[in-house]
């Protein structure tokens, strides 16, 4: 029974957890996903071992991984996200990020290059001018945020699968991992089957205009079969890889597959 030898006898571990949470910086507090911190959990689970934050966290992480597998199994590569007429577009389309618009990356087109890494034949970097020459398609789809709200927008760009073919990517690899320009180094892994989905797009335009800064200039990856946070903006590199490299929100506890 000496499972938690570090606990001090006579000290209420719930209060201990509560107190220690107060001293955590905000980000650490957020990462404290077990919910042992919330009174709801405390009143509900008093006496259960599950209240122990680390065991709850482990259990929830396991179920989330299981849910990744279930979602991958459910994913039909031919199922298309519904498309909408132009009249259905949400105006204004919301800006949403973990920072204010003023702090969003402000990228000069001339300085920007898309870096290509990993399991690809041609690792050359791409300028915006070169990318703009690739064939583009427009699609009007619903963007669904992990928070629950949704908005319909019009995105124009090159299907990612065409680009992956062009650069000779090994499409048997597990992931395409994107890195972004914002200061905290946003990144996100995309499973290869979703990357090859016909609607997954390297987006250069919103509503037929060059992608504005708010929506991820110069390039966003639009994945209508994923929640919004799996649609990285201000992308600076993509890596074709078999390694799970984690992601900005994924590492904090959002379900990694998060497919719709």
């Amino acid at each position: 029974m000496a499972k938690r030898p570090f606990l001090i006898p006579g000290v209420d571990k719930r209060l201990l957890i509560k107190d220690s949470i107060k001293t955590m910086p905000d980000l650490a507090r957020r990462r404290f996903i077990a919910g042992g911190a919330s009174l709801g959990a405390l009143t509900l689970l008093t006496g259960c071992d599950v209240i122990d934050s680390s065991s709850a966290e482990t259990m929830l992480a396991k179920v989330s991984k299981f849910n990744d597998a279930v979602q991958a199994w459910m994913f039909n590569p031919d199922a298309l996200a519904p498309t909408f007429p132009e009249s259905a577009i949400t105006k204004p389309f919301p800006f949403n990020a973990y920072y204010d618009l003023d702090d969003a990356p402000d990228i000069a087109a001339a300085d920007w290059k898309l870096e290509v890494r990993g399991l690809v034949d041609n690792k050359k970097s791409w300028t915006l001018e070169e990318l703009y020459k690739l064939p583009q398609v427009t699609q009007i789809t619903r963007h669904i945020c992990v928070e629950g709200w949704s908005a319909i927008g019009s995105w124009t760009g090159t299907p990612l699968r065409d680009f992956l073919k062009l650069i000779g990517a090994d499409t048997r690899a597990q992931y395409v991992w994107f890195q972004c320009a914002d200061k905290d180094g946003y990144n996100s892994p995309l499973d290869m089957r979703s990357a090859l989905h016909p609607q997954t797009q390297m987006t250069f335009k919103y509503a037929n205009e060059i992608l504005p800064r708010a929506y991820g200039f110069p390039m966003k990856i639009r994945v209508p079969t994923k929640l919004g946070f799996k649609n990285p903006k201000y992308v600076i590199s993509m890596e074709v890889t078999n390694d799970y490299k984690g992601g900005y929100w994924e590492d904090q506890g959002y379900n990694s597959f998060s497919g719709s």
């Binding site: 957020r30 919330s38 506890g253 959002y254």
Partner: peptide, 12 residues
């Protein structure tokens, strides 16, 4: 009266 501490925890 909420569970999870934040959105990500609630979702889990």
């Amino acid at each position: 009266y909420t569970l999870g501490g934040w959105l990500g925890g609630g979702l889990l």
